[in-house]
């Protein structure tokens, strides 16, 4: 499966890479602020719930999380192969498996909000 659908996985990887490059740094900064106790307004529970309650918010969050997971799974797969781990089948199943579970979970959570 992993071999046949290289185009599929690569497109997810590329989309995820671009999306994370635009979005992750600022999100990470905000998270860092929160972790240091200077929780920005948006990180309050109500604000978060409000943000994720509308469909645009849900879609953005779903896209970001799931594509980031597929991006990471795919890139880690090539990195591990490069590092000499010759278990591409297992790495693919585990990596893409996590991405798939994460994708489903994020959808499940977001629908609940």
């Amino acid at each position: 499966m992993a071999k046949v659908n290289k185009a599929l996985f690569w497109s997810l990887f590329a989309a995820g890479g671009t999306l994370t490059a635009f979005v992750f740094p600022v999100l990470a900064l905000i998270t860092l602020f929160a972790a240091h106790g200077n929780t920005p307004e948006i990180m309050g529970f109500e604000q978060m719930q409000g943000l994720l309650a509308n469909w645009f918010g849900k879609l953005a969050a779903f896209g970001t999380v799931s594509l980031a997971l597929w991006h990471a799974a795919h890139r880690l797969r090539t990195a591990l192969y490069g590092l000499g781990l010759r278990a591409d089948g297992i790495v693919s199943v585990v990596g893409y498996g996590i991405a798939l579970v994460g994708t489903i979970l994020s959808a499940y959570y977001l629908v609940q909000i």
Binding site: F24, T64, R75, L76, G102
Partner: peptide, 14 residues
């Protein structure tokens, strides 16, 4: 290897 941290952060968001 940046993918490790991109993946971790995605899990954190999840």
């Amino acid at each position: 290897l940046t993918s490790v941290f991109v993946g971790l952060y995605a899990l954190l968001l999840l």
